[in-house]
Structure formats: structure tokens, C-alpha cells
Nucleic acid binder design. Sequence first.
DNA 1: CTCCGAT
Length: 633
Amino acid sequence: MSWDFTGGRGGAGGGRARLPSYVPPHLRNAPVANPYNAAYGYSPYSAVYNAPGYGQYGGGGYVLGGQQDFAPRGRGRRGRGGQRRNEYESSSSPSFADAIAEKFDELEVLGEEEAAGGGGGGINFEAYDDIPVKATGSEVPPPVERFDEIDLGEGLMQNIRRCKYSKPTPVQKHAIPIAVAGRDLMACAQTGSGKTAAFCFPIISTILKNGLNSGPGGTRTVAQPSALILSPTRELSCQIHEEAKKFAFKTGVRIVVAYGGASIQQQLYNLEKGVDILVATPGRLADMIDRGRVSLKMIKHLALDEADRMLDMGFEPQIRKIVQQMGMPPPGQRQTMLFSATFPDEIQRLASDFLKDYIFLSVGRVGSSTGLISQKIELVQDMDKRSHIMKLLHGQKANGKRDLTLVFTETKKGADALEYYLSMSGLPAIAIHGDKVQMERERALRSFKAGVTPILVATDVASRGLDIPNVSHVINFDLPKDIDDYVHRIGRTGRAGKSGLATAFFSDQNMSLAKPLVELMKESNQEVPPWLNEYAKNSSNIYSGGGRYRRYGGGGGGGSRHGGYDDYRNDYSGGGYGGYGGASYGGYDSGSYYGDNGYGGYAAPPAWSGLGGGGGGGYELGTEAVVASGWDM
DNA sequence: CTCCGAT
């Protein structure tokens, strides 16, 4: 029984006494309210410590680099587990289909340059061939080379053709078989690499096979989606929704989006018409669950996009509540898929609470080895930033309208101030940040995409996941504190196989970033300014603090480690986790390469860390150089 | 004093 919305407290939940009871809207002002912020204080590590041993892992795993040929023994041994051949029909209500049909036509026109799906025109597939891929975990299903190697269902296959996705992108080749097999997945891959389709295809396919939700039931409907996709920003939820609708076109699978800042009435109305897949931001979803309008008890698939963001300090408690305390079936009874471009160990550890016997997949960024994004770091003090950006922008003013420049600032205020300054100086700029109402946010994004205001000044609200074609230049007016945020930001350019430029203003305030920045740049074959190298050397010990989730092993020269994150279950180099590691890994790596070493405080030589994919039975192809070349750049 | 996410 899931969460009891109507009944008395206690009782029904059986052992779930801690669940907040439903409070009707008219009583919400009582001090009782907001069960979300307090009351469920959570100690992030407790659950991890108590986790059962990972005895089941260590069976499989592979590392691919360079060519796509696959180790024969891996393929033979595992076969094609998990593929079902059930017949099914896609039913669709005509009115719904018609409504979507219109939308589809629109999207088809707009979507011609979309990077996300992969196969579309203009994508440089050559660049896909030397992408490093690594999968670890037990019994990893082998990748496919073509969509039709997997029985995704006729309706979905048609849509894949409609979208002109001729061939899966690397993340799709690997993630789709894993997901279709019903396995849990933690995937490290940048948006723009086809991530959305990678989790949408298996979800839609499985829903079609298992039967659609019966539409609106009685008069009072509680929406019971069978899949939930969570994302950290409203705009990203919209983007996922738009894309998912294309994939579900005329299949009868209903997809609804829910996010804050927009009328909840319309969203509830959409839910009442029936929903199979709900795409949502956390706050609005919790609100709807609170109101008793959405129930998670039928969830079979859970996907977290930009998962590292969703699990960082600000978000993690909310996510944990939604996933663990609001009636969703536990791991093992649902499929959970986490996607992000960056996956620090700490986040992996938190995330493992949500997963069962999962596969860790790490896929390089398209063009990572060719350095599609050229990074320039300039030493500019805060007081000189404005005049400096003026020089830069005037220098590129001659560019055509479709060349867009995305400028990141640290604060919302800073974004507004810079927008004002640029506008006053005759440059067509517009700002986007979380203090603007949703309409303004959307207007800014549209205006930018259309080239009406080809300069967008943004906070980190725009740093992740958004797929904006033709961003040729990303300027870090203020550098972020965390190197991962930098990675996400510059990833807004260089998409769809196009080249991009990322310029950063490095000031005295950014010393703590010097070292990780230099490491990142070296791994992506960028030229590091000598002064920055000096800062990095001098600051390595002084400024060891900094990012929210710094990676450990800082001394190790990190060669193969940064950019592409490794499965933390395989990482024995983190001396910092001495006390923790030993117990909970338990039988995890019987037969591992490092087998007999106690890991408490054991430090592997730098050259080892990051390789050795997957405990026992892991195997690797390709050269170290490729593996080390920096995923997601 | 970040940022984001509900009313």
C-alpha cells in the first residue's frame, strides 16, 4: 500500500509512520505545514554505511576505446538476456494523436539541428568512433550498433525513423540494452550526446509492452504515472517533455510535464487526462503529491537527469523524500536510471541508495579527443571585466545572427547588472535567472535562441542540460567555484559536432579553481597559459578547499581520472575513505585485480586508478590514452 | 550573502 492520502495517520502505512500525512489545502497555513524542510532530517551517509555488501558485483564490465569491436567472450557469455518478445499493440486515442501530430510537425521543423537525438542531419558521426566507453557492474548487457537490434516496438521504431535517428549515439548503444533489460543504471554522459533518448526509448518501449495506463478513471482521479523523470530546472523539464513527446508520437503513451512558475491548474488538468510518463521538477511534484493529485505507487521507472545536481547539497533532501518517502516502490521493484555529465564519488555514494545492482556507464563526449571546444583563460580582475567583455563582444559583432554568445555570471544580481550594462552599450543582451518569473525566463530563452538577442547573460540556471543550437561562444564572466560547473557551462557550446569557444575571466577570486582547471585543460589538450600553471602549482596546497564535492586523490596527478568519472565501487585510490571502504564493500570485488589488498587507506598508484574496469571479469579494449582522454571534456 | 527548486 502506498501513501495514504485520505485515511488517518499511522495505520495504513504499516511501518511508514514517518510519512507526512496529507494536509488538505485549506489547512495548510497551520504551523504544521512544510513537512519538507524539517522533521525528516537526514544524515546522508548513514544509509550508505548500512548498505549490504556488494557481493553481486564484479562479474562483468568492459571498457571500450577506439573501435567498436566487442570482446567476443563478453558477448558469448552473456547472450541477450532480458529481451522480451512479447507482442503488443500500440493503442492510441485519435484526439490525442491528432493533438500531438500538430506538435510533432512543429517540432520536426524546429528539431532539424537537434544534437540530442544523434542521427539527425549535420551530426558528425565520425567523431563518435573514438569515444571511450566504459561499463562496470555485474552481467552488463552488450551494446548494440543499430536501433533495430532491440525490439523496441513498432510505434517507437517509426518515431525513431521520423526523428531521422539513423544510428544510435554511443550512450544510446550502451544504455538502451541495459535499460531494456530492466537494469538500474548510473550513466555519465553529457547532454547533447543523446541522453534523453537513451532513457526515454526503454521507458516508452516497456510501457507499450506492459500496457498503457487506463485513462481517467472515476470522477476524482489520482494520477498514477508508471514513469517519473526528474530534472533540476523548469526549462530542462520542458525540453525533456518536448523531446519525449516526439518519441511517443501516436503510440498512445501519455507524457505530462509539471513544473513551478506556471499554472498548476492546467498541469493538473493534463494529468487528469491520464499520464504514463511524468516529467517534473521536484518542488512542483511534491506539491502535487501533497495535494493528493499524484501518486507514485505505480512507478516502474525513475530517471534523474543531471543527477549530480539533483543530489547536491541543496536538492538532495527533496529528492530523497520524493524517492524514498512518498510512496514510490523501493529499488528492485522499480527501475532507476541516473544520468549526468559529471559524477563525483560523493554523489555516486549518495545515489547508490536509490539503485540496486546497477551498471555504471561512462561515455565520452562527442569530439572529446578532437577538442571541439577550445578553452581560453584570461587573467582579468573583477574591476576590468566589463571593459574586457566589451572588447570581446565588439570583436565578434560582425558575426551572423545565428552565432550566439552565452555569458555566465555568479549571481542573479550580477546577471541583471551585466545585461543592463551591455544593453546600454548598444549590445543586444538579455538575462535569465531564477529571480525572473517563468514567462520572462522563457521569453529570454526564446529571444536568445532566435537570435533576436544573441547575447544571453545567465546564472547557472542555464548551465546544465539545455540544448541551444548555435552557441558558438561561452564566456565565464565569473568563473564558478566548482570545476564540474565549469564543465557543464562550457558544454553549452561545441554541440552537434560544431566547434565552440569558451573564454573565462580568471581573477584573484578564482585561485582555488586554478589546479582543477589546469588538470581539465591538459586532459582536453588545451594550451594552458603559463601564469595559470604557476597559480596551479602554488595553490595546490593552500587552496585545497573549494568545490562542493571535490574529488579526492588530488595528489595523484589524476591523469585518467578527471572529466570522466569512474565507478566509485572500483575506486580504491581514495585514501580519504579508509574507514568507510573496508566494511561496506564486503565481498564486492572477489576476484578483482586488486583482490587481496585491504582497501582501508590503500592507495593505488595513480596509473591504476580509473582503469581496471569492473572488478573480476572486467576487460578493456583500446589504449590507455583514449580511456584517459577526458570524458565530457 | 550562489544557484536552483512550491505556494
